[in-house]
Design a protein around this nucleic acid. Structure first.
Lengths: 341, 341
DNA sequence: TTTAGCACTCAAACGCTAAGAGTGCTAACA
DNA sequence: TGTTAGCACTCTTAGCGTTTGAGTGCTAAA
């Protein structure tokens, strides 16, 4: 798929102009924009060919051209002139993220907020996930009578808790027994390993006392499963209302974003450091007018989670992609400091 | 402010008709709706008087009448014919709320979801708050090196956690010392009491070891403050997009709802079992086209939190108010079961 | 290969008219 | 005195033809 140099220049200009104004761009306007010494008719011919090749589209006969999905793709892959965030912006990001203190959950949430605000789009972020996350602590706190609360703390700083009801009152010795077994069996183990098999072993080593404590074991298992789930935090949804390309379609999109499964599927299905999904590339009908920029962060050498954003396909890729990349680095650095120092 | 019986009937009919259709209602339509044997001209006269008295408004000369804020108020206070949820709906609500298990946080969140879905509006809910909530447990978990994680668990089942960094490595004996002092000083105390004074006492009883542990103490204090804060969970924001009265104004409203302070202020400023704020009654400019229905739930005899909803002033008060009331009772019952059995 | 010129297309804006819903007033009526 | 029929008047909304203007595609000449 080779494009002549002039075609590349023109395609880039169309994409950038359209991103800037949101209006279809015509040959005359382009001629003015480009310093290039070539007539509008020539540009017209080139654009016509680009349209034939599928890089540009026409809303209707007498309108200008608009980049197609393929056009955006080519732009992002080959033409885009990255605009890195400057020193001031970097410092600003760091300050905003750190504002909530060193708590990991907070940091990640803040990163999403910053991204949303930076881009005027919806942003998402997930907690760290994967093999490197292990169980740091399990607690059972009686809260009166037959009820108790189970807590699970992971090495990523995730806390999960659940109320659990038993058929009897928990005695101190039972609790101790449970602690000993659970601690030796679970602590230090990767969260993702806590499955049905491990729980059977656990129940076995609890011996005769296993049966009554089963609800507790089940609760811990649920907590582990919960902690292992990628749950996606969403920020700045209302920003999407500002984009006129979504007029009348916002509701459908927001409904879609508020279901947890599709987003988390999207996130876990991409393993690259940075992914840009344009329009239908995401394979979700509800996102066919949207682009997604998704980046993973690492904590030290360990794999972390992801942050990303969702906006109209007409998005300022050249500015935003570098910012997202910078943010992942920053977030990884701050998380490492918070968790491992 | 006495209204003749006929005026009352007419006002109620106008309100109900407008709530149903969203169109300004005219004298002729009303005549058909009411079985009443009276001509449209008479109705016209009555409506004209109601308009003069401030209960109705006219969008423009040649349109029908629309209830004013005062009109809604009178309707809700005197005319409304409550429609209680039937058995099926009650069972449905109970099933939906309980679906997530017995965890208090979950229950409350679910109650919000149910409310949002039930009303096609945005719903909010808050955790229990007040004097009755005390500290159940404080934990410090070393997570490697000089970093540790502080946990605070309240009697309402709220968990707060934060990462805390020290200037040195925590030894077992220091930890034990800290535990002993903190446990005896804080556990069983109301969350709201943990202020600066108490912390000074605490620091004093830690003796010579106080200074290096100060960050820990501060962290616990922060957690307590955090747990005492009414933080508002919001559900079903996108439902608001379905109401045409918000066309073009949704963004402002959503922005407003996503700031935590105003909502929590709204909630804490009303202490009744049930509050209905219509239009400007809420005193927030951003809510002048909205109504708020806010209800408190109790856990047993103790005061709990609140659930509520935000929607256009044109809302089906007669159906929704009873549902909200039923929901608070239900939620209180389920929470009590989860926390105190 | 490039460019100027020109006819052609189509959406958006504009102005006008007609329709329809609803009011307010007046005068008659019970 | 309260109620009603009748009617003129108001104002919005929808529909329709026209105009405008941006932009294209084609052709012929440089």
């Amino acid at each position: 798929m080779e494009l002549s140099e002039r075609k590349q220049i023109i395609l880039a200009a169309v994409v950038e102009q359209f991103i800037e104004t949101g209006e279809p761009v015509g040959s005359k306007g382009l001629q003015a924009k480009l310093g290039i010494s070539v007539s509008s008719a020539t540009i017209r011919n080139e654009m016509s060919e680009l349209a034939e090749m599928g890089y540009l589209e026409q809303p209707h006969t007498s309108a200008g051209r608009v980049p197609s999905q393929k056009g955006y793709r080519y732009y992002v892959d080959h033409l885009m002139n990255r605009r890195e965030p400057d020193d001031y912006q970097r410092r600003q990001m760091e300050a905003d993220i750190s504002a909530g203190g060193a708590d990991p959950q907070r940091l990640i949430e803040k990163a999403g907020e910053v991204l949303a605000q930076l881009t005027n789009c919806a942003a998402m972020s997930t907690m760290p996930k994967g093999e490197g996350i292990f169980i740091r602590r399990v607690e059972v706190v009686p809260v009166g009578g037959k009820t108790c609360m189970t807590l699970l703390l992971t090495s990523a700083g995730i806390i999960r808790s659940r109320v659990c009801r038993l058929d009897f009152e928990l005695t101190a010795s039972m609790l101790e027994n449970f602690y000993n077994v659970v601690s030796s069996a679970l602590i230090g183990r990767p969260v993702s390993e806590v499955g049905a098999v491990m729980l059977q072993t656990l129940a076995a080593s609890l011996g005769s006392e296993a049966l009554p404590l089963l609800p507790l074991i089940a609760a811990v298992a649920e907590l582990a499963r919960d902690a292992d789930e990628t749950d996606v935090m969403l920020e700045g949804q209302s920003n999407l209302l500002n984009h006129r390309e979504y007029d009348g379609k916002v509701y459908e999109l927001l409904e879609f974003l508020n279901k947890p499964q599709p987003l988390s599927h999207l996130i876990s299905s991409s393993k690259n450091d940075l992914d840009v999904l344009i329009g239908k590339e995401s394979l979700f009908r509800q996102l066919e007018d949207s682009s997604i920029i998704l980046a993973r962060y690492n904590i030290g050498l360990r794999e972390g989670g992801a942050i990303g954003l969702i906006g109209p396909t007409r998005i300022d890729y050249a500015r935003i992609i570098p910012s997202v990349e910078y943010l992942t680095g920053l977030l990884g650095k701050l998380l490492k400091k918070a968790l491992e120092e």
